[in-house]
Simulated assay, not measured.
Amino acid sequence: MSLESVRNHLASAAPELEVIVTEDSSATVDLAAKAHGVEPGQIAKTLSFQLKDKIFLVVARGDARMDNKKAKATFGGKVKMLGLDEVETLTGHPVGGVCPFGLAQPLPVYCDVSLKEYDVVIPAAGATNAAVRIPPERMAEITGAEWVDVCQPRQDASPQA
């Protein structure tokens, strides 16, 4: 059902996009990068958070780590990740297939600026072996996402002269 809800959402919001289903699992960032022949950073991972009674999603580059101080400043308090048992109930997608498309209920979506380093990113598409190739700006547009800066800077980024 989850893959179908993503296909239905994309058919109406972005009919130019095709859901890619692979034989191999893409349930983790490393597996997804291997399955799609890209570096882990190009995978757009969707994380599920809670702050008090507010549930929301953050989509970030696959190799990014949340910065707790930035997240607290951005969202107005200490956020906690949802438990594995809560994720599928609230998003409608299994862990490893969570994405901002075709959600079981409307949830706020935030895209981390780390995604803008790529022309195209690859988020999951509602199943542990499904994904879509999409420009980050387009993903934010069709999900109504707000851009935020809540991830740590990349460690291998060299300082600009």
Rank of each mutant, 00 (worst) to 15 (best):
134 I>G: 00
55 I>H: 14
51 L>M: 14
48 S>F: 07
18 E>M: 13
67 D>H: 08
142 I>A: 06
76 G>S: 10
74 T>F: 00
79 V>M: 14
103 L>D: 06
154 R>Q: 12
47 L>W: 00
41 G>R: 05
22 T>K: 06
160 Q>I: 14
129 N>T: 12
145 A>G: 03
135 P>V: 11
123 P>G: 00
19 V>A: 10
137 E>F: 00
29 V>R: 01
124 A>C: 08
48 S>H: 08
9 H>Q: 08
62 G>R: 02
86 E>P: 04
102 G>Y: 06
47 L>S: 07
20 I>H: 12
71 A>W: 09
160 Q>K: 14
133 R>V: 10
21 V>I: 10
132 V>R: 07
124 A>F: 06
27 A>C: 06
99 C>H: 04
2 S>Y: 09
161 A>Y: 08
71 A>L: 13
79 V>W: 02
24 D>W: 10
134 I>F: 01
144 G>F: 01
130 A>S: 12
105 Q>I: 06
130 A>K: 03
5 S>E: 11
4 E>M: 11
83 G>S: 15
45 K>D: 04
68 N>Q: 13
97 G>W: 05
70 K>F: 04
143 T>V: 09
117 E>S: 10
136 P>R: 01
136 P>I: 02
29 V>S: 03
59 V>C: 09
27 A>P: 05
157 A>I: 08
129 N>G: 13
8 N>P: 03
154 R>A: 13
93 H>S: 03
48 S>D: 08
156 D>P: 03
95 V>M: 09
108 P>A: 13
127 A>H: 12
101 F>V: 00
79 V>R: 09
152 Q>A: 10
78 K>R: 14
44 A>Y: 04
117 E>L: 11
24 D>F: 11
60 A>Q: 03
60 A>E: 00
158 S>L: 15
136 P>H: 03
90 L>M: 10
40 P>R: 04
39 E>I: 14
95 V>D: 05
26 S>A: 15
